[in-house]
Design a protein around this nucleic acid. Structure first.
Lengths: 156, 156
DNA sequence: GAAGTATAGTTAGCTATGCTAACTAATTTC
DNA sequence: GAAATTAGTTAGCATAGCTAACTATACTTC
């Protein structure tokens, strides 16, 4: 770091330091998710379906378009993901009373159970590793997770 | 945190705190990579090929089996990825002198250029966001990146 | 050195996930 | 009420993951 500013004033543009952090963060997140992804295999559903289902479980009912936007995917892609989830009885689809074009999609009880089980496996895997960290490093990750969340919210 | 230990002694097993961090980290990394992934579209190559190519560029020549192991993918999958990269002249393949079954795969000059350009786009995107962070938060991410790297190395 | 086993990669064929283009149907706007 | 917009589907393409079954080379064992 060449200059310090404790208030939200940005640093100079794309210094080597910023690029180095971008690189490390990029690499670490890729490898972290690659490890966790393996835990999902035994759920019987692919990553896109699990992710969409988790949006429904934690975010409540959504239309197809809202789901597509949340998952940053085009409508036809989400259409097929929803079809797959419906085929497995993991979601329930109701027509919107106000607008017959819209569909209200919600997780079914079965979908909720499946997602919680999958989530449990991922969390157990990651938590099992975090668990082995010394307190100090654990705290660093806690702070970083908050920073990352804000970064994503403020992304532009 | 219920107990503190500044030395590498692990905490109690899978406390709510550990699970909460696992959850936040999981969510943040997923959404971070989803954003960065978009930058790769204009490279003309998919994520699996870019990732394998980056292994070759930064890790030097590899056999197909080594590439598959590094990318945590089965041999037939890597076989097709390599075929795609070869079709685009992004890699060069030589037969191993000692063992005619093996292939030595290396990035071509064209592959190196393409990967560096793609990497530049990802890094610019992420760095552009990191750039806007106040110094203090930036430093937190730096520390976290180190912790994450160690976590991945020590993963078991 | 021949037979059997192990290893490196390929091929075929399945599923899942992403896209665009072109479509249907419902709603809104003018 | 005609035109434009919006929600979602269908068709068709490419990438990426897998297993099973194959070829070809290398190693082992007698």
């Amino acid at each position: 770091m060449t200059k310090s500013s404790l208030k939200p004033s940005p640093r100079e543009k794309l210094s080597p330091e910023v690029l180095a952090l971008a690189d490390h963060l990029h690499s670490a997140t890729i490898h972290l998710l690659r490890r966790l992804r393996k835990q999902d295999a035994c759920s019987g559903e692919g990553p896109a379906r699990l992710s969409a289902l988790s949006v429904l479980v934690f975010g409540g009912p959504k239309t197809l378009g809202e789901l597509a936007a949340t998952e940053q995917v085009k409508a036809p892609t989400m259409s097929r993901i929803v079809a797959g989830l419906a085929r497995g009885r993991l979601i329930e689809i109701a027509l919107d009373a106000d607008d017959a074009r819209r569909m209200q999609i919600r997780a079914s009880a079965k979908g909720e159970r499946l997602l919680q089980a999958a989530r449990q496996r991922r969390m157990a895997s990651l938590a099992g590793q975090l668990h082995r960290l010394p307190m100090k490093e654990f705290a660093k990750l806690q702070q970083a997770a908050e920073v990352l969340s804000r970064l994503l919210v403020d992304w532009r």
